[in-house]
Structure formats: C-alpha cells, structure tokens
Simulated assay, not measured.
Amino acid sequence: MGKTVELDVREDLKKKLEPFQKIMAAIQPLAQGDVFILHAPFKPVPLFPIMKKKGFSYQAEKIEDKHWKITFVKTEE
C-alpha cells in the first residue's frame, strides 16, 4: 500500500489564494501507487488534464455544497 497525502484548499480559495503551487508541491514526492486526496469548494476540472499528464487517475465526489473530494492515484511514473 502506497502513502496518502491529503490537502484541503477550501480556506485558501476562500481567502482568494491560488492553491496550484501548494498542490504541485504536495504531489511532487509521490510514487506509483500513492494517493493524493484534494478537498476543494468546486470540481477542479482544469486540474484534471494536468494531473493526468503527471500520471494520475482521479475520481471526483461531491460531499456537500462547496465541498468536493477528489482522489488522485499515481498510476504511472
């Protein structure tokens, strides 16, 4: 079983802070089989093709209003 990294960017976005660099820093050390869980206030569709290029598959799940949980799995190096 790989490791899991979880990041919640809802507060950053509420404060109008761009979380892209924080997300990229969080996924940087991940290896094949590792999981990255992102909590966001909306479905971050623009992030999906970027993560796919970096070798991640994903599953998005709406938890409640303004809370999406996206689970990315590193499938390739």
Rank of each mutant, 00 (worst) to 15 (best):
V5S: 05
I50S: 10
F48V: 04
L17P: 01
H39S: 15
Y58V: 06
V5P: 00
A25H: 12
E11W: 03
K14L: 13
Q32H: 07
F36W: 09
K52I: 11
M1L: 01
T75V: 13
H39I: 15
L13R: 08
Q32P: 10
I23P: 00
F36R: 00
G2R: 04
W68C: 05
D8K: 13
M1C: 09
E64K: 01
T75L: 02
K15I: 10
E11R: 03
I70Q: 12
L47R: 14
P19E: 11
I63R: 14
I27H: 06
Q28D: 12
K53G: 04
L47A: 11
V9R: 00
K69P: 01
V45Q: 08
H39G: 05
T75R: 01
I70V: 14
G2N: 01
T4I: 01
E6H: 11
E77F: 07
E11V: 02
K15Y: 02
G55F: 02
V9M: 08
L17W: 07
L38S: 05
Y58M: 12
D12G: 03
K22P: 07
L17M: 09
T4L: 02
E76V: 10
K16G: 00
T75A: 03
K62F: 14
R10N: 04
R10W: 06
M51I: 12
K22R: 15
F48K: 11
